[in-house]
């Protein structure tokens, strides 16, 4: 008979201190709950990104509070802001320096599509130079929207065939979108 104090989870007395599961599940569990973002803050979206790190929204509830300004220590680039053509090379170079596996979140209208900056100087969507996993709408998106997008990314990470690609570099996923004239 179960009482309110019964533990339904892992019970070492029953299981014998052994957990049986799939490698994919374990790897993805680890990866999705310790996403270290690379804050690529380029415009006002970065302010909302900072707000997400604060106590009110608290991105650390999802294991993402460790924002690393070194690409070598981070695995999710959050492109927060307007990417100009002059900056595009820099963004791509930082992405190239991140260790696999890595993911990209396009935060806000500018990073997703160029936003309202339809001009000669602005890259019309960061997906022209980076393989974007999650797009977040908004100008800028509220921290709730960012958290929602990051939770979507977590779900996406959990579906990945991690074991198959563990020792293999993932193929370059960049597709340069063609604009129909």
């Amino acid at each position: 008979m179960s009482s309110s104090t019964t533990e339904y989870g892992y019970n070492s007395k029953v299981e014998g201190e052994v957990i049986v599961t799939k490698a994919d599940a374990v790897i993805n569990w680890v990866r999705s709950n310790s996403v270290w973002p690379m804050p690529m803050g380029l415009a006002c979206c970065a302010i909302e990104l900072m707000g997400s790190g604060g106590s009110r929204f608290d991105i650390s509830r999802f294991g993402m509070e460790v924002m690393r300004f070194s690409p070598r220590q981070s695995d999710c680039m959050i492109v927060a802001g307007t990417v100009t053509y002059k900056m595009a090379e820099v963004v791509r170079r930082i992405y190239d320096q991140m260790a696999e596996p890595k993911w990209v979140v396009a935060m806000g209208a500018c990073a997703s599509s160029g936003g309202m900056f339809r001009s000669y100087a602005t890259l019309q969507g960061v997906d022209r130079i980076l393989p974007v996993d999650v797009y977040i709408s908004g100008c800028p998106p509220k921290p709730e929207a960012l958290l929602d997008g990051m939770m979507l990314l977590q779900e996406k990470i959990r579906r990945e065939p991690a074991t198959k690609t563990l020792l293999r570099p993932r193929p370059s996923r960049i597709v340069d979108t063609k604009v129909v004239a």
Partner: peptide
């Protein structure tokens, strides 16, 4: 005489990065 949307040209790059093979394209206005 310069259009706001811009004209097609190469993006700045010291050494052509493999992944970023995009160009400056006229923005959809």
């Amino acid at each position: 005489e310069f259009p706001l949307a811009g004209k097609e040209t190469d993006i700045p790059s010291d050494d052509q990065i493999e992944g970023a093979r995009t160009k400056v394209r006229p923005a959809p206005l």
